[in-house]
Design a binder for these strands. Structure first.
Lengths: 188, 188, 188, 188
DNA sequence: TATGAATGAGTATTCATTCAT
DNA sequence: GATGAATGAATACTCATTCAT
């Protein structure tokens, strides 16, 4: 990726998070990135496309962070626990990016197209759940719903941790307890 | 409340949900409500104030709906189950209003002032959790976090139900199962 | 004149002076006068007409003040001196009204019609000058110009007195000196 | 100064003079200047700033015109006479600009800031008066008042000349006579 | 006559996007 | 590619005036 393109994305993340999407003119993004206003449109056809790109970048970073050390062949619980931990870790380390990603997901500013392509990358999670149910490790319920619950509890965990500025031991305990609650709920 | 005021709020809900806040000019709201552009500002000082009013109205409707038949003197589980049921019921019956309320809550378009005054009304829920923990009915954890988890799972439940157009029996089962998962997680 | 009409004029003077013509909505004038917005238009066809009326009222008050004790049969110098004194007296006593009248005169907000009708009342001054020149008491110059100079010096005198908050003795001396300068200039 | 900026100022002068400040929308100024509405705001942050700029430009032109051939080392009377002549010359040659500058000065539309910075440039005139009094050439009176009288008589002279469309000889005589009246009044 | 809610044309200002250099 | 001045449609809000009660 071109250096200027990266700068523009970084500037967008910075300003979107600070001021919101609608209070951040493209001209300010360009200036903050150290390029001319026109230059932005050499890299991103429109503001909408830029927003899509920001979303894709954040989602990618998140995915990459989650996948570090993923125990591909571990037991189901192990794998789920890994995602649980890495997700919260990312959310707590990069609260700005995390919050921006969350906003974007709910904002319908991201094009249908990009939204769906990102969801496709989560197919493996869906399969994992299906398998877990088949194996009797997870209770019998719609996999999509279970996924939803999983994600909802993760969000609650990150929100609480960020809001209360947890760190180190309290954070570790919080993560473990949150997972315990989740796991107890979805296993027979 | 004045008839025109109601029309304006209803038009706002309609259009905000359909098009988003930033794609809905006040002029279109007024026209949709069948009044002149200036009239809107006779009732709401500014667009921001209008948004606040929409939020308050939705929150009130939600609260009213939840409180119908609330078993003030029932056991903890009974009370929580009631809220669980009524919340999902509202979300499924009024998906537009539900989604709008959710968006608004996360959007920071609602003034600090209104946001807080609304949160105050939920104090009773917080007290309920604290009591539950003291009584040993709920596991020992930060009440705020438990509240967060509760709400997160409710959102997941509504989202799944709405997305999949559940009704009648499947819906009843879904609600019951969702509550079961939650309850198993947070009780010893 | 109706009581309400008077209140409206008074309110207009008050607010116009404080905020300017363009920053004073008719609705605020009405409220300040203690009547409904619509009532204003029962007395004054439009805002323009109201402004005309304000101007006429101020001009009338000014005229009345000047004419108190006017030495109809005195010598020219005596009569001019009288006007000199009474004008400054009015300007210093009612600075708000004075400043408003001055603004209005230069603003072209007053209709041509009213402007002219007011000037007509000053015909006597013009005649006085003509007579003075004919009698050789005043130097030979266009009477209109001489009138202009007279008024210009009066304005300078009021402006200086108001700006420097003169009172009593200093004011008396200032008035006398100003007149002296004027008189020395226009007499042979 | 940029070409477009000049056009915008010229258009503003034109329209402000013809229609007044409040009857001249920025959009009409832009169109009259042959640029897009947005362009105006590339050069002037707001309408207020534009008005300030118009005032500064007029004041500068006036100053420049007055200072042409100023007899820096001439006698007091000579210097005052020069200003007298050049001021009236400017007023008669550019009646639109003259009237606009006058309106602006009294309108409190010009920012405090600009108003004061312009007055500072007139300090030399004040010093001149003080010196004249000290030397016994001018009568002993408050210098500020004398300055006021000077300016007031100049305004009267320009007003009369413009109103009566004086030119050439009559104008020359008018200027000379006006100065004579002034000078006779303020010298011992 | 008095009222004040309703009206809607009018206005300053913003900002995504273009394009000549 | 890079630039940034120019563009003009879009938008929140105001306020003189009307008119049904």
């Amino acid at each position: 990726m071109n250096e200027k393109e990266k700068q523009l994305l970084e500037a967008s993340i910075d300003l979107f998070a600070k001021e919101g999407f609608w209070n951040t003119p493209t001209s300010r993004i360009a200036k903050h990135a150290g390029v001319a206003t026109g230059t932005l449109f050499n890299y991103f056809e429109s503001k909408d496309v830029l927003i899509d790109a920001v979303y894709k970048r954040l989602k990618q970073e998140w995915m990459d962070h989650i996948m570090v050390g993923y125990p591909q062949n571990g037991a189901l619980k192990e794998r789920v626990e890994h995602i649980w931990f890495r997700h919260i870790d990312w959310g707590v380390r990069f609260p700005v990016r995390y919050s921006l990603m969350t906003q974007l997901k709910l904002s319908n500013l991201v094009s249908q197209e990009v939204q769906q392509s990102q969801e496709a990358e989560l197919a493996f999670a869906y399969d994992m759940i299906v398998q877990g149910i088949a194996d009797g490790v997870l209770i019998d319920m719609p996999p999509a719903y279970l996924g939803q619950i999983f994600y909802a509890q993760l969000e609650a965990a990150v929100y609480y941790a960020t809001e209360n500025n947890l760190s180190d031991m309290p954070l570790t305990r919080h993560i473990a307890q949150g997972f315990e609650i989740f796991w107890r709920g979805v296993t027979p």
